[in-house]
């Protein structure tokens, strides 16, 4: 007797086939959700920085931008690393401070302050920024990026985390 499906059998077969696709799809979807969430987790990861002490307020000078190097101790996933970084500090009155991220907003070149021209000059595409960080000339799409600053107990602290112009 060879296998010969009856009409009942055919309904049963199509039901089973659909159930297989359904259950298989469910397992696949849940698994894809879990694995996908894990794989894409960097998208939800928030960077944490802590405030860095740049020294005494009285050591800065009004109207003269100065580049300050500092060491940040931070977590890089499972390891803790110390990295060197820097910021341009500008102050008009030794009470309020502005800290600029040291990279040009065009392509990330390291700019410097020109005492003659009273402007920040970028060496790559001759962009210039004013002392307030605004674009004076050249291709940069936005003013210089800033770091939050605060003064605590006579010390200037910055949070080396880029924010748009305050």
């Amino acid at each position: 007797m060879a296998y010969d499906p009856t009409e009942n059998e055919i309904t049963r077969r199509s039901f089973l086939s659909r159930a297989i696709v359904g259950i298989g799809g469910l397992i696949g979807a849940v698994f894809t959700g879990i694995g996908g969430g894990y794989f894409l987790s960097p998208l939800w990861h928030k960077k944490k920085e802590s405030w860095v002490d740049l020294g005494l307020v009285k050591d800065f000078r009004e109207g003269v931008p100065v580049k300050v190097d500092f060491t940040v101790r931070k977590r890089d996933a499972w390891s803790t690393i110390e990295s060197r970084s820097s910021a341009w500090i500008v102050t008009a009155n030794l009470k309020e401070f502005i800290a600029f991220d040291p990279k040009c907003t065009h392509l990330g070149c390291p700019y410097r302050w020109s005492d003659d021209k009273k402007q920040f000059l970028c060496p790559c595409h001759t962009a210039t920024f004013g002392i307030d960080g605004k674009v004076v000339s050249g291709p940069p799409p936005r003013p210089l990026d800033r770091y939050p600053t605060k003064v605590v107990g006579g010390h200037l602290l910055i949070l080396p985390q880029k924010t748009a112009e305050a």
């Binding site: 694995g35 969430g37 894990y38 794989f39 894409l40 987790s41 996933a77 499972w78």
Partner: peptide, 29 residues
């Protein structure tokens, strides 16, 4: 997926596992 966040070195293996458990979305699961 786990291999993406694991380091086979005595210095970092343990901490990378802790990282998976505590920091990565759905890592513990």
């Amino acid at each position: 997926l786990l291999a993406m966040n694991y380091v086979p070195s005595p210095d970092h293996a343990y901490d990378s596992i802790r990282f998976i458990n505590e920091q990565v979305l759905l890592g513990r699961f």
